[in-house]
Design a protein around this nucleic acid. Structure first.
Lengths: 223, 223
DNA sequence: CGGTCATGTGACCGATCAGTCACATTTTAT
DNA sequence: ATAAAATGTGACTGATCGGTCACATGACCG
């Protein structure tokens, strides 16, 4: 965790420094990100940075926690639309899908940083707070259990397993969207955000949700 | 690509060197993997290695291509069981799921290296041959089109989209299995392979396939 | 003023890295 | 045997890295 000196910093200086740090660790993975480059860009001495944080990993952990908070906040305001209790499971899932993409669009550096955190070296990953991925799985599972109890979803699925499957589908949504737009998910790493308007996204969500709800077998098949 | 000198190497020396290189690049990502460490372990001079490959990336690209070939070979022998033409789509999908896990178990370093290749720096990724990921998607899509034509699967899904969804599900299978076994996919990165016998895996495949085929809605729901 | 304490500083350290090159050694051809 | 070509070698280069520390600067308080 940051040293007390960091908290005493003028808010403005602290914010601009963290913005640059976020940029550095979003653009490069943990091993490649450079503290030297960061302090050069920030115009402070390297010694100063080490008055704020114990080491590189300490800074990284702090940035990841901040980014998760930022994204979670965005997710909650975006996903709050629609009646959270009245809507069914599939409606809420659609809301989450949409909100996740919108949040990642609004905060690309934060989203990228969290991706980086997942593939950080083990000794760094151990110092991270419990990942938000686990929180998402748990949240998803509780939604599933609820929907199973209400009869909206088949009750004989293992909620934990399905939660992981849905998480996998949601994390695979990026390539799905890119493929639909004609990009190559292997080569290109980003899509111009102006291409991602609801007119494109909604039909994709429709089809994905139909898959989740109905599966692949033909509608005429007997139960 | 490797220099001619590399091809002239005695097969045994070439193989043992490549085994050590595979280990190095499987254990560390591209930025962290060290040519110096590799040549030390291999007991050859650094200059020698640079008689075989132009640079670090050249070696990496070669290793990835080899690993993909190894895994593809394992996949084909494993997945070849069962009548490839007579079986339906879902049977073949199950075969692929099983074979993918078995292949990754039999060749853990190769599987890890290919993971690393996906997250290599862009300038390195550009030098890789077309990823096998794209091949898998294409293969999956052709299977889907076929199954749609035969009426086994609903015809009004976009095969490209569904292919990506299935690819996401298959790549999410790891955490699913780990969760079922009581491991934490965030903390632990590996599961003892002896825990992965068919008795554990088959019920998981059953449930995943039912999800893919029938979706989440209750069986009693009207069409 | 003077003294104390927090903060800022950047030259410096040891380590490591990818890649080179002048030279030694070995293999092949003549 | 000798020349020529191929291969092996490791000290070296220049760069970068994360992290330290002796010291300078400034703020606050008596």
């Amino acid at each position: 965790m940051p040293k007390p000196t960091f908290d005493n910093l003028p808010a403005e200086k602290r914010a601009s420094l963290m913005a640059l740090a976020l940029q550095e660790f979003a653009e490069h993975d943990f091993a490649t990100a450079s503290v030297s480059r960061l302090v050069d860009r920030a115009g402070i001495a390297k010694g100063s940075l080490y008055q704020y944080f114990d080491d590189k990993a300490d800074l990284f952990v702090y940035l990841v926690a901040q980014a998760e908070a930022t994204l979670l906040g965005a997710l909650q305001t975006l996903g709050g639309r629609g009646d959270p209790l009245g809507d069914g499971f599939l409606q809420r899932l659609r809301g989450q899908m949409s909100a996740t993409i919108q949040a990642a669009l609004a905060h690309p550096r934060e989203a990228r940083l969290i991706q980086r955190a997942r593939q950080a070296p083990p000794e760094v990953r151990q110092r991270l707070d419990r990942h938000d991925a686990r929180l998402r799985i748990d949240h998803m599972r509780s939604l599933l259990v609820e929907a199973q109890a209400s009869g909206e979803l088949a009750g004989d699925y293992d909620p934990e397993l399905v939660a992981h499957l849905l998480a996998a589908i949601m994390s695979g949504l990026g390539p799905v969207v890119m493929a639909r737009l004609g990009f190559d998910p292997e080569r290109d790493s980003d899509v111009p955000s102006e291409r991602l308007d609801p007119v494109i996204l909604e039909p994709i969500f429709d089809e994905v949700l139909r898959f989740i709800s109905h599966g692949l077998r033909p509608a005429s098949a007997l139960v």
